[in-house]
Computed example of a mutant assay.
Amino acid sequence: MEFTTLTNNRITIELVSTPEGLAQAVADLSNYKELALDLEFDQNRFTYGFNLCLVQITAGNGRCYIIDPFEIENLRLLFTLFEDQTITKIIHHSNNDILLLDKMGCRIRNVMDTDVAAKILNYERSSLATVLKEEFGIEIDKSQQSSNWNKRPLTEQQLHYAALDVVYLHQVKTKLVAEIERVGRLNWLQEEDILLENLRYTESENPHLRLRNASRLTYYSQFILKALYQFREALGMEMNKPAPFIIPNDALVELASEPNVDIHEWLNHTKGIHGRLKRSSYEKKLMSVLEQAKKDAAANNISFDYPVNQFRRPFRTAETEKRKEDLTTIQADVVKNFGEFAGRLVINQSLINDYSYTGQLRCTKLYATQIIFDTADRLDINLPPPVIVPQQNQE
């Protein structure tokens, strides 16, 4: 790197790119009880996969450490700091950060999410830029928001932008939490933050079926699609490029639906195919994958029938409509009392639809369940006992 320390607007930005520098930063940060942090990552935008590019972290004392994981092989010291239950980690919109850390083997603890805090206070737009402008009159430059964080060396503009994502978070947290306490919703924030901490990264069991129109293919074509998808993923990893950059999703589904096409013609007349795939060696690999998939499909007697749409909703009945009407009435009252955007944390359309069709009120939040049932009692609406379920893992 061309520099290690920058000073801007009375903020010292220290770039950490060695194991020794990381040890010093962690030793310093361990002395504080509240840390603000953010991650810059790439999720199949410029490179293959879901990868950490930068970590920004500050104790709110005018110094911001920016840690370059590309230069430091072992981040366990940093992860131990994140896992320390005695230190509050202030993050704005932490979902993806938590999932990435979990993917890397770090179970972050004691998270305080300022994005959730803003939603609890009924912010229509809860981005950090919006909160800073509305609460503090601070406007931040977002010109680097779409920056490629994989590139090295990092520019001064990138480092300044990265630092701005954390240097104001202590102020934001103090202001928003004070207002949440004033309106009596601190238990909302505490429970929402615990739910976030418990997010776990999981790989989809059948990611090929999540491609657009894949569910409309026959069982046979879906079988072929799975083989093609795995081939494309391997190429993405090999080339370190997002897999859809190599073969677009719609082209992959199209090929699975018509696996007997002339591959040479298909490669050279399909929009968006990566140039390397048109080379003779890769063309032969693709042909081999297709032929093997067709042989395996025949050997396993894969049907040419279309699958029954598993996402088809049950038929509406008087009973399902009554349940929907009841929860919609409760939702309207919740929105009236707490506001539209805070109300979505308590009761959303997904919960209403699920209750309407199943008759089960499956809740993941205790505070929201209490509000729903208190509202139902006040409106004289009968609800069944709630089914408390853990929040689902996310990818």
Rank of each mutant, 00 (worst) to 15 (best):
Q85L: 12
N51D: 05
A243K: 14
P69D: 05
R200H: 14
L169S: 08
Y219E: 12
I273R: 13
Y123E: 11
L267W: 09
R152A: 00
D193C: 14
Y229W: 14
L277K: 09
R279I: 07
D296C: 01
F341Y: 15
L78S: 09
M112F: 12
Y48E: 04
T7H: 10
N9G: 02
M287L: 10
R152F: 01
P259V: 02
R10G: 04
E395I: 10
R362T: 13
H274C: 03
G49P: 04
G339R: 14
T317H: 14
G60H: 14
I388E: 03
N249I: 05
S215T: 15
I67F: 05
I13V: 14
R344D: 00
A243L: 11
G184Y: 00
L132F: 08
P386H: 04
R45C: 07
S303L: 11
K324S: 09
L345F: 02
L196M: 09
L29Q: 13
Q158L: 02
L39D: 06
E192L: 11
E319Q: 15
D165F: 05
T12Q: 13
V116P: 01
L195T: 12
N51I: 08
P385G: 00
V177Q: 12
L81M: 06
L164V: 11
E156P: 08
I372M: 04
Q190D: 12
D97W: 00
M287Q: 15
R232Y: 04
Y168V: 11
T328K: 15
P69K: 08
R107P: 00
S288C: 02
G105T: 02
E258C: 12
I347V: 12
A23M: 09
G184N: 00
S303N: 10
S350L: 08
L383F: 11
P314I: 06
S204T: 11
Y355N: 08
V131G: 05
C106D: 10
D68E: 03
